[in-house]
Design a binder for these strands. Structure first.
Lengths: 192, 192, 192, 192
DNA sequence: CATGAATGAGTATTCATTCAT
DNA sequence: AATGAATGAATACTCATTCAT
């Protein structure tokens, strides 16, 4: 009785391979960015997996808990900030503009910088602080920030502006952010 | 096709009677104030009923939805603010100090002033604005706020300060609030 | 302002895995059939999940709302009817006998054919109508139904008989159904 | 120190008196009739008390449980039927027309005649049966009902027609009822 | 590794019923 | 008696997390 070859699996079935992992991770990040912006960081994780076109299990493989996902989204912003900070022409107003854009675009992301529950966010916060601090002296020298402003003040300013945006509809945010920075007497180059 | 509740479902015990109504309402408000401060306005309503020592049903009778409860808590603050605003010796720094104390004491309360979903909050916001506006001229005259400051600016300042406090532990809030107001160049008489 | 479900809420035990999917769906249908027959279609969904030995969540995954579950149960009956209608020897009395058995066996199932709230039921009703209509001419020819009987009349007859059974105990139903059909002058071959 | 007469209660406060009791009972019945017709007999009792403008407690005083209320509503119908039955000119078609009107007007009322849970309904059912039976012979004699029709058949017919109406929108009910009776070969004088 | 179903604890919400006033 | 608030059990529904395939 010969083996039934008609049941042999052709293995044509695409093998996801390691490439899929990276693709999934990216898709999850993008989905999380969007969902967080639309519904806040308390949105159902299942919605993120769905939008990413990925199984729930994969979401958990890449991001063991909600904060890991939030942190990853924030980290994208921080990476971008550091890159900008490293550019020759970088200035504090530019960087604050970038930070503000992040706050405007996705509620609860920059603004989680403040969260310090398990400390993962703190490291990100420190990186933001360093990126901004590098340009504070120049800004003081050129009068773009009030004399006596410290790095801590700049960070507090970021939190104040972000905090004021949080519960406002997206449409109002850009104007509100501009006014908020001007109340602080800090020059900011808002994108666009 | 709702659930069939026609089967008998007797109550287990005790029924203080309607005399408890006012007491219950007050207990619910106090409980909500505390729980909101501790856990944010998304805390389980059941926790509030429990802390108030009141049945779930009573909570819903007094406050048909979560926002009604939040609004009632905020309204307590607004009432206090209006009372303070009406006093002879009232000044903007005093009133802002009061608003700040509310923000310091209970996360997500003053800071919900901004919520405008069903409009109930907007009315409260307007009352706050009026209470503060009444003293803005005097504050401008005495230089306690920067020249050119408008009522809208003051409100934005309140939101900025509240927003910055929101995600900070209570212990840091008073100092943070003081610093935040000083960055805005607005004099505030913080309580205590 | 939804509940904050961000806190960990681990599952307690056991997880058969997706292999259980088909089995679960079938178990839910069987449980629903029984519970609906015993307690009507307003019975607690939790009872159905319990009898099926399935978590609440699985019930909701398979049947997003109560009507979906009712419709699925009814659809089983309709499938059976169509199959019967397709058989060579099929006749209207046989088919009405089958419909009557369904009405006798499970309160509120055939009788929901009439529900037209969201329209899902209407499609099922149309299928029943078509299955019966296919055999009406033969029945008219052989005098098994009164001359002049239309398809709509047959459907109304089904509803009348079902309606009369609804609030009667199961034991009385077969005899009652037989009498009811005879009042209508329509021959029905009752099973058994 | 003289007694403080300013606190004397003027007793102008209306004394409900015993008249109120009857008025309340009537209001509850009317409200129940309407609510049952609109939402079925499983509607919240609180809605009935509210529409009657009466406290929950009063509802319970007059009608200790839901079935008592349903029975009272049905009894109104039965009273009307008996009165009609006693009239000289009464005929079975007229009486069935009246019963049909009741079924058309309020879902779940005539149709609860069948409910026999605690037996209270049974007595009402018997009264209906007697009222109709008194005119069956005349109807048989005049050929308004098929030869051989028994009282039980008439009752079953009532249940069939009512059952068919139950889940239909009010607008369709009159036409449907007429057709249903004609399928049964029973003459009915529909009101209006 | 990915998938997606299963699970069940947690929350919101609704009423039937009681009872102090 | 009438009132209407209080009560809490029951039910619906959601989602974080696990795990068989």
């Amino acid at each position: 009785m010969p083996a039934d070859r008609s049941k042999a699996r052709p293995t044509t079935r695409s093998n996801p391979g390691p490439a899929a992992a990276a693709r999934n991770r990216a898709a999850l990040l993008a989905a999380a960015h969007g969902i967080f912006a639309e519904s806040g960081t308390a949105a159902p994780l299942s919605a993120i997996a769905r939008r990413a076109g990925v199984g729930q299990g994969s979401l958990y493989r890449h991001f063991p808990d909600r904060l890991a996902l939030v942190a990853a989204v924030v980290e994208e912003n921080v990476d971008e900030l550091e890159t900008a900070s490293g550019r020759d022409a970088a200035s504090l107003p530019d960087l604050l503009g970038l930070v503000t854009r992040h706050a405007v675009e996705s509620v609860g992301v920059v603004d989680l910088l403040v969260e310090d529950r398990p400390g993962r966010m703190l490291a990100l916060r420190d990186r933001v602080e360093a990126a901004l601090a590098a340009h504070l002296d120049a800004a003081l020298a050129s009068g773009r920030v009030p004399a006596g402003t410290t790095t801590a003040d700049v960070m507090l300013g970021v939190e104040m502006v972000s905090g004021a945006l949080t519960r406002r509809p997206s449409s109002e945010r850009p104007a509100l952010a501009a006014r908020a920075w001007s109340l602080l007497g800090i020059a900011v180059t808002l994108p666009r």
